[in-house]
């Protein structure tokens, strides 16, 4: 259990059976009055937010959270198969992976957050490299402007890339935003 005086930004707590992270915290105490611990919290499963004001004698449960590292092996329909360093396999669904599934590269190490033994969220490396498998031919000579065009990456997901990118180029993608970062190699 956490008591109110343990609360601080970044702490993970459990409210109504769901894990939350404190995203904003302030301590206020009017003269001679009770301390009030104002928290903004984000639900770690669905991303919804709440504001709560706690008092000194309030208690909060500690969520059962753990992290495990896996390497990506392969996809089987909507199932994604990963393996840990002891060759133990786990299967994560497309629903849990969300858009992250488009940026998986074989042997990439990912971190899975478990809540009460259930996989809940995955964290990919910040940048991954993917080959461009389909896009309009690049426009020569225009590497400075910010004009973007659609391009399919290996696996078929579509991202926006600068117009100078060609089919067969390899690009780096920021997995936090799903956006093109830079070109790694030319076709």
């Amino acid at each position: 259990m956490f008591s109110a005086s343990d609360l601080r930004k970044g702490l993970k707590v459990e409210i109504d059976g769901a894990p939350y992270v404190i995203t904003d915290f302030s301590f206020v105490k009017p003269g001679k009055g009770q301390a009030i611990y104002n928290c903004k919290l984000k639900n770690m499963v669905n991303g919804s937010t709440l504001s709560r004001a706690y008092r000194s004698n309030d208690k909060l449960a500690k969520p059962e959270l753990s992290n495990r590292k896996f390497q990506y092996s392969y996809a089987d329909g909507d199932d994604y198969i990963f393996m840990d360093d002891k060759y133990e396999q786990v299967t994560l669904s497309a629903a849990i992976l969300g858009d992250s599934r488009h940026f998986l590269v074989e042997d990439t190490e990912i971190e899975v957050l478990y809540y009460r033994g259930q996989p809940m969220d995955v964290t990919l490396p910040t940048f991954v490299e993917k080959a461009i498998v389909d896009t309009e031919p690049g426009v020569r000579g225009d590497t400075a402007t910010n004009v973007l065009k659609p391009a399919k990456i290996a696996g078929g997901y579509e991202i926006q890339v600068p117009i100078f990118i060609n089919q067969g180029d390899t690009v780096r993608i920021d997995t936090r935003t799903g956006q093109y970062s830079d070109r790694v190699s030319k076709a």
């Binding site: 206020v28 105490k29 009017p30 009055g33 009770q34 009030i36 004001a53 008092r55």
Partner: peptide, 14 residues
């Protein structure tokens, strides 16, 4: 009401 007094002091009056 002590609880309400303290809450409103920081949230409304101050």
């Amino acid at each position: 009401d002590g609880d309400r007094f303290d809450r409103d002091m920081t949230a409304k009056v101050m």
